[in-house]
């Protein structure tokens, strides 16, 4: 392979890697968009990002590849997951569109935009590839460092300011200023007595310790679930699981198992007819 030709093409290994991982990345991206649960979306995105990190490495951007994994996949995606947990892991979105025509417009715009981008890339004469080897001759990290601390030093400094601002901004946004002193246990107890509602502590959630049982409402004596037993946050998220049907199902399963063990046949209404037929 002549050096010139090397500039135009990549190695077969890289090509193989591209086609395989590229496909996976696209699938990951699609899953990010299409998954119902935010957790799944986040995981798919993390996968796509890791693949992108691999592509960075393949393109000679070793520093960025590592940063991608450490910062993006490691920090940012974890932050996402953290927020997802805060909002509710199990909450599934409906993918049904509520704004009329939004989906078709979005798809049309997306398709049009994609076609245009492809056309633009295809239209550009991108035949010259210098390769990154020359630039990475003194090591990728060293090369980047020399650029960042010389040519881009101001941008870099401003970036620092931006990060500080963002951190402070995030704190300001999420910080809730207390306007009054937090109530003590004693005061809360007095308030409860004064209101005359729920004098005792709130009832415990359901007793079916099969899942994270805090989201299962406890049953009242008459068998109806009481929402009071469920944590307020879960109540507001609408993540209460109704297990009344489950309980019946379980009961039926229990009965069936008992019958099987006792080898008792099910009494069917039809069996009453047989003796009559036999007597005939």
């Amino acid at each position: 392979m002549s050096p010139q030709l090397a500039a135009y093409t990549t190695s077969t290994g890289e090509a193989f890697q591209f086609w395989v991982l590229g496909t996976v990345a696209v699938i990951g991206a699609l899953c990010t968009v299409l998954m119902k649960k935010a957790v799944h979306s986040a995981l798919c995105l993390a996968g796509t990002m890791i693949i992108l990190a691999v592509f960075y490495l393949a393109n000679g951007a070793y520093f960025l590849g590592v940063v991608q994994i450490v910062v993006y996949t490691g920090a940012i995606m974890m932050l996402f997951l953290f927020v997802v947990m805060l909002v509710g892991v199990t909450a599934a979105d409906s993918l049904k569109e509520t704004i009329k025509g939004q989906r078709w417009l979005a798809l049309l715009c997306g398709a049009g935009f994609g076609v245009l981008l492809f056309a633009g890339i295809g239209n550009a004469s991108l035949k010259e590839f210098d390769g990154i080897g020359q630039a990475n001759a003194n090591g990728n990290v060293e090369g980047l460092a020399s650029l960042i601390f010389t040519k881009y030093v101001f941008a870099f400094e401003i970036t620092g300011a931006l990060l500080i601002t963002a951190a402070v901004g995030a704190m300001v946004l999420t910080h809730r200023e207390r306007t009054e002193r937090a109530k003590t246990q004693r005061e809360l107890a007095e308030q409860r007595v004064r209101e005359g509602k729920h004098l005792p502590p709130l009832p415990a959630p359901g007793v079916y310790a099969r899942h994270n049982a805090v989201d299962i409402a406890g049953l009242l004596p008459d068998g109806t679930p009481s929402e009071l037993t469920v944590n307020k946050t879960l109540r507001e998220r609408g993540q209460i699981r109704d297990v009344s049907a489950e309980a019946l199902g379980d009961l039926r399963a229990l009965e069936q198992r008992a019958e099987e063990r006792l080898e008792r046949t099910e009494i069917e209404p039809a069996t009453f007819k047989r003796p009559e037929e036999a007597s005939k």
């Binding site: 393109n59 000679g60 590839f129 990154i132 990728n140 980047l144 650029l147 040519k151 970036t159 990060l163």
Partner: peptide
């Protein structure tokens, strides 16, 4: 960056990441 044989593209990508990090913090 690879096409042009210099590291400026990677620098831009790096800055993008930093800005994205800041954006994620505020956005979340």
């Amino acid at each position: 960056s690879r096409m042009h044989g210099n590291l400026d593209g990677q620098i831009i990508a790096f800055f993008t990441m930093v800005v994205a990090a800041a954006e994620v913090v505020v956005g979340l």
